[in-house]
Structure formats: structure tokens, C-alpha cells
């Protein structure tokens, strides 16, 4: 539409706001990156010199190898288990309308709507009673609580868009339930499963609260270790904390970039929008 001057000014103001936000966001990330490679940085725009020594320092001092290994174990287990529980449930939710379906749907929405810190403390108490608190299985179980419903809610529309007649056809040609799942449904659902599991992966790497409340000293993931490092700032050089932050950022963002090849960014947010 041809625009009036007023509309143009308004558009300009909105873009200025967006630019301001994005510039500060990127500058914030850049500041962490630059600091992690800096030797000494005091009252100048850039550090006096550049070094990679803080990465070696963080690697040894924070015990990064074991933390990274725990992170891989936790994230891997959460991704696999949430897929195994979530996909069949989503299939049933999408294909059958049974009495109480609305209530079940609401049940799956709750863990996504209630923030983790709210149910994390009772959950940690229960895990403690079950002698799982502080173990890696406790951390995995806690992280599954939002992940399983997340997979279910992402997968339901993917299942719904598969024409039920395709399944009917497979059954007419004599495919049993197992064969139907493996040979017809899984291939058709692969894009959806991939999207859901990648999102679970990214969210689990970044899930602070639940891991923080349930982890012991040898079951911390990267984000919790980063929290303790920042919390105890002053004990160790700031650059080494930023080096650790960069390791965390790279881990997360690589997976985010991979995930974004398969999903629209708005999907990351609109999981529970109903």
C-alpha cells in the first residue's frame, strides 16, 4: 500500500527498536567470546592480547571432560526415552477420540505450562525418597517430565496430517500392527520425530532448573556447572568462566542450527499454544 509519512516514521521507530535489541544481544554474546580469548582487559575496548589458555584452564579446572560426558548421557537418554514414550502416545491421541481425551490432553499440557521451578522442588523431594536424587537417573527422570509432553504435543499434528486411508490401505494389504508402524508410519513420521527430538535435545541442554534441583556433584550437566562457576565468580579468573560459557554456547547453538534446518523458529515457542 502507498504509505503516509506518519506510517513511515512509525515503521522506522519499530525497526530501530528491533535493531537496538539485536545489536545489544549480539554485542553481549561477542563480549563473552572476546573476553574468553583475552589476556588482560581493563578499561579498553579490546583486551591487551589474545590467548587460548583460558580454555585449557577451564577444561582442567572445571572438570569439563566429565561434565560434558554427563551432559551427553543425560541428553541422549532424555531424547531416546521421550521419543519412545511420546511418539506412540501422540499417535493414539491423534487417531482415537476416546472418553476423557480432553482431560488427558490437559494432563499433557500441564507440565509445559507450569514452570519447572514450581514442580521441581516437590519432584526432587519425591526422587530423594526414591533414593534417585543426586544420581544421573534422577536427572534423566526429572528432565523427561517436560520432554515427554513436549514430544506428544509436537507429534500430534504430524500424525494428524497423515491420511488414515494410507494406514487402512496398508492393513488391507495385510500389514500387521508392528509392520504398519515400522514400514509405514515411522518413515512418514520421520520429519516430525526428527523435529521433536532435536527440539527436546536443545531444550534439555539448556534446562537449568530441573537439573539443578536434582543433580548431585557428579551428575551435573554443562548448564548447571556454568551456573556454579558464575555463582562462585571471583574464585577463578573471569575469562575462564567465559571460556566455559563459550563451550556451552557452541554446544547449544550447533544443535540449534541443526534443529532450525527442520523446524520453524516459532515452533520452539508455540508448543503449548491452544
Amino acid at each position: 500500500m502507498p504509505k503516509s509519512l506518519q506510517e513511515r516514521l512509525w515503521a522506522l521507530a519499530v525497526w530501530a527498536l528491533v535493531a537496538f535489541f539485536v545489536v545489544n544481544l549480539l554485542a553481549m554474546i561477542a563480549a563473552v567470546l572476546v573476553n574468553s580469548f583475552g589476556t588482560r582487559w581493563f578499561n579498553t575496548w579490546l583486551p591487551a592480547g589474545f590467548t587460548t589458555q583460558w580454555y585449557a584452564f577451564a577444561w582442567n579446572e572445571f572438570g569439563l571432560p566429565s561434565i560434558l560426558w554427563v551432559t551427553v548421557e543425560v541428553v541422549g537418554a532424555v531424547v531416546v526415552l521421550s521419543g519412545l514414550i511420546g511418539v506412540p502416545t501422540a499417535y493414539a491421541m491423534a487417531r482415537r477420540s476416546f472418553p476423557g481425551r480432553q482431560a488427558v490432553m490437559f494432563l499433557f499440557l500441564l507440565p509445559l505450562l507450569v514452570p519447572p521451578i514450581t514442580y521441581g522442588i516437590p519432584l526432587a523431594t519425591v526422587l530423594y525418597q526414591a533414593r534417585l536424587a543426586g544420581t544421573i537417573w534422577g536427572v534423566i527422570l526429572a528432565n523427561l517430565v517436560p520432554s515427554v509432553p513436549f514430544v506428544i504435543l509436537i507429534m500430534i499434528p504430524f500424525v494428524e496430517q497423515i491420511d488414515p486411508r494410507v494406514e487402512a490401505a496398508a492393513r488391507v494389504f495385510g500389514a500387521g500392527t508392528g509392520r504398519l508402524f515400522v514400514q509405514v508410519l515411522v518413515p512418514l513420521l520421520t520429519p516430525g520425530i526428527l523435529a521433536a527430538l532435536l527440539l527436546v535435545l536443545v531444550r534439555t541442554i539448556a534446562m537449568f532448573e530441573l537439573t539443578f534441583l536434582t543433580a548431585g556433584s557428579d551428575s551435573q550437566t554443562l548448564v548447571v556447572a556454568l551456573y556454579y562457576a558464575v555463582f562462585a565468580a571471583g574464585v577463578r579468573p573471569g575469562q575462564s568462566i567465559d571460556a566455559m560459557a563459550v563451550v556451552y554456547m557452541v554446544t547449544t547453538l550447533i544443535w540449534l542450527l541443526i534443529a532450525l534446518r527442520f523446524v520453524n523458529p516459532t515452533q520452539i515457542v508455540t508448543r503449548a499454544k491452544q
Binding site: M28, V202, A206, A245, M249, L256
Partner: peptide, 13 residues
Amino acid sequence: TLGTVMVAEGLLT
């Protein structure tokens, strides 16, 4: 995606 802990460390720097 980065989460609040990382944003906090970024803001501190």
C-alpha cells in the same frame, strides 16, 4: 535457547 544462566553471564560481561 541459551537459557537464563548464559544470558546472566553475558550480561555480567
